[in-house]
Design a binder for these strands. Structure first.
Lengths: 111, 111
DNA sequence: TTTACATTCAACCAAAAGGTTGAATATATT
DNA sequence: AATATATTCAACCTTTTGGTTGAATGTAAA
């Protein structure tokens, strides 16, 4: 099982709309930091920080070539997050079934 | 489509381990705020705030009976988050296929 | 009607988040 | 060698977050 902090980082990174937009922006492959930043109205430095957050969450990879840093998407954290969410939903689905069943039994006992 | 802020709130709420633990704690049905707080080492007030965050994200529901507030889990936000993550993963799966294909073609052209 | 209990409100605090600007660093270009 | 470009680092600011403590509120129990 991955350290829980990994999930924290993934969800925190994804919770910000600017960062989600940055990820989408990488859909055509690698992009340099300046290219990533272009469509946004905030400063290049702010984008640089967002990229760092994504990088720490392993949602992007950085490939340095000379002065250029090529940023690209990594799918693993999203896979792991999907797994966690699915497991949690399954956990709840069974719990809710059980609760519903209990209510039904209780109901039958009171008839 | 749900307002994007909804997703922000869901992911932000889920990004905190204490709040994820609180959700799990609700698996046996409703619980009063004090009951929710019991296993945690932080103050009741801190838990009360966490519950408020979960409530704003609609991850829990509150039913007031006299002085007791009964907190229970709501599944919709997690369903919506799962949907978003799946869509995003699909989006990426097709993009990555395309990129890989491009590389293969390029490779063939250079043979 | 006092007293106890469940919960929130209010004020406060330290640390983190998200932004800014300006300087530093490293690499390209002329 | 000088200049331009790409990026980060550093300092700073404001707002938010996650926590605290103490008081207020509302309800239940003695």
């Amino acid at each position: 099982m991955a350290a829980p902090r990994t999930l924290d980082r993934t969800l925190t990174a994804l919770a910000d709309p600017t960062r989600r937009a940055i990820l989408r922006r990488l859909s055509s492959g690698e992009a340099r930091v300046t290219e990533v930043a272009r469509p946004f109205s905030i400063s290049l430095n702010a984008i640089s920080k967002h990229i760092l957050v994504l990088e720490r969450a392993k949602l992007v990879k950085r490939r340095k070539v000379g002065r250029d840093h090529f940023i690209s998407y990594r799918s693993e954290p999203l896979d792991a997050a999907a797994k966690w969410i699915d497991e949690t939903r399954n956990f709840w689905a069974s719990r809710l079934d059980t609760l519903e069943q209990l209510l039904r039994e209780e109901d039958a006992a009171n008839k």
